[in-house]
């Protein structure tokens, strides 16, 4: 990882995050690294490191965090959050970062596609007549093949 350039830091970033659900207690992090030690993703790939992400956010490295590919590697397993001795809602904080990154125009294609499919058709995997045939064959009930309500909800 490159050196941190603090001239690019944005002190408002930290305040902005701390005022939203998931970010309230990030300043309490005392870098014990229990999160990283508990993380199943860090265990197989050092690109993802929760304690470092929290530190970067606290330093105000807005672009480096929101534009990164690593914030998307949180699997939302909650191991870190359950174990954090300082009560930081780390998993919810990662969700906050992802939401903020999307608003800033950053997101992996797969994540955007998931959102658009669900908001468009109500399900990740739409059910078609072929699915219903397979379901009926084993006595499972048919499911609707269209979804109108999403048009009203969003």
């Amino acid at each position: 990882m490159a050196d941190i350039d603090l001239s690019k830091a944005d002190p408002n970033f930290r305040r902005e995050l701390a005022s939203q659900p998931g970010g309230e207690k990030i300043a309490a992090c005392f870098t014990c690294r229990t999160c990283t030690a508990s993380c199943p993703v860090s265990a197989v790939n050092s690109k993802f490191n929760p304690y470092r992400i929290i530190r970067m956010a606290l330093y105000g490295l807005r672009e480096e965090v929101l534009g990164s590919d690593f914030i998307w590697l949180c699997s939302s397993c909650y191991s870190c959050q359950e174990r954090c001795p300082q009560g930081v809602s780390i998993t919810e904080f990662m969700t906050l970062l992802k939401n903020t990154a999307i608003q800033a125009g950053h997101a992996p294609a797969g994540i955007k596609a998931q959102r658009d499919i669900i908001k468009g058709q109500g399900r990740i995997y739409a059910i078609d007549e072929f699915d219903n045939k397979k379901r009926n064959k084993i006595d499972l009930p048919s499911l609707p093949t269209t979804c109108e309500v999403v048009k009203f909800l969003f």
Binding site: T95, N99, K112, R115, V149, V150
Partner: peptide
């Protein structure tokens, strides 16, 4: 019949 996605896959993009 009217049940749709629970919302889980959308949480990371739009809570």
């Amino acid at each position: 019949e009217e049940f749709i996605c629970c919302g889980f896959p959308v949480k990371s993009s739009e809570i």
